[in-house]
């Protein structure tokens, strides 16, 4: 079966730094994929390339059989690619509710009033119901991360790109997040998840890839990948708490 989202021979360099070196990535429909790698490995850049905020130097981005390499971010969003940002990017002067309304109304290309119910439910699911009418700029980091996820989900994505959403969460919050992500996936959304919190990742993904120096150096079953010598080497002996 053809992958839902594929990066084909993607290369990207910023000056002398190679952040993607002929990278290939294929996400099957309904799959949940995890990506780990040290800081500066090029993980977030790959998301930028998939979502359209970063233009690759070479290679193609394919979504649902269509070449979207030159499509701007808003068109990709409307096609069903949603992302969360590593550093939350809320519309800080707007209310939390307005934040998700924007995403639902514009990604769906539908009238504003028609998304109110779905947005209210979504805020409830993401634990933000009591803060719906608060200014997004005044949220705590945890709530900003929740909003980041709620807003991405509001676009009704087919592919959800999650960029370090679990960092800084307590054990309890992290478990709730994993449940939510599994739930989203059960709803038919394919997921690519970049994460340093490895145990959260292992609980939710089917396949794990290791990015290092702009290349995938290991790939496969999450629990065996995490124990592989390559991973041990790049993390310099830091044991994975799997």
């Amino acid at each position: 079966m053809a992958p839902l989202l594929a990066l084909e021979n993607i290369s990207k360099r910023f000056g002398a730094v190679v952040v993607a070196d002929s990278v290939n990535l294929a996400l099957a429909e309904g799959e949940a994929l995890g990506i780990i790698g040290p800081n500066g490995a090029g993980k977030t850049t790959l998301f930028g390339i998939a979502a359209g905020t970063v233009a690759p130097d070479a290679g193609r981005v394919i979504f649902a059989g269509e070449d979207i390499t030159r499509l701007p971010p808003e068109r990709r969003c409307r096609k069903g690619i949603a992302r969360s940002f590593q550093v939350p990017q809320p519309f800080s002067g707007m209310t939390v509710f307005e934040n998700v309304v924007v995403a639902a109304a514009f990604a769906g290309g539908v009238r504003e009033a028609s998304v109110y119910d779905a947005c209210a439910d979504l805020l409830d699911r993401c634990g933000l119901a009591d803060k719906a009418n608060k200014r997004a700029g005044g949220l705590t980091l945890l709530d900003r991360k929740r909003l980041e996820l709620a807003r991405a989900l509001a676009t009704k994505p087919r592919v959800l790109l999650l960029d370090e959403v679990a960092g800084g969460l307590t054990e309890h919050e992290c478990a709730a997040l994993v449940t939510l992500i599994k739930d989203v996936r059960a709803g038919g959304v394919s997921i690519v998840w970049i994460e340093h919190v490895v145990h959260a990742l292992l609980a939710a993904v089917d396949r794990l890839l290791v990015l290092h120096g702009g290349k995938f150096i290991a790939e496969g079953d999450p629990r065996s990948v995490i124990r592989s010598p390559q991973v041990a080497e790049i993390y310099m002996g830091i044991a994975a708490d799997a």
Partner: peptide, 13 residues
């Protein structure tokens, strides 16, 4: 006004 990059990533032209 609040965030151009996020606006784009959420379907706004």
């Amino acid at each position: 006004r609040d965030n151009e990059v996020a606006a784009q990533s959420n379907g706004i032209d």
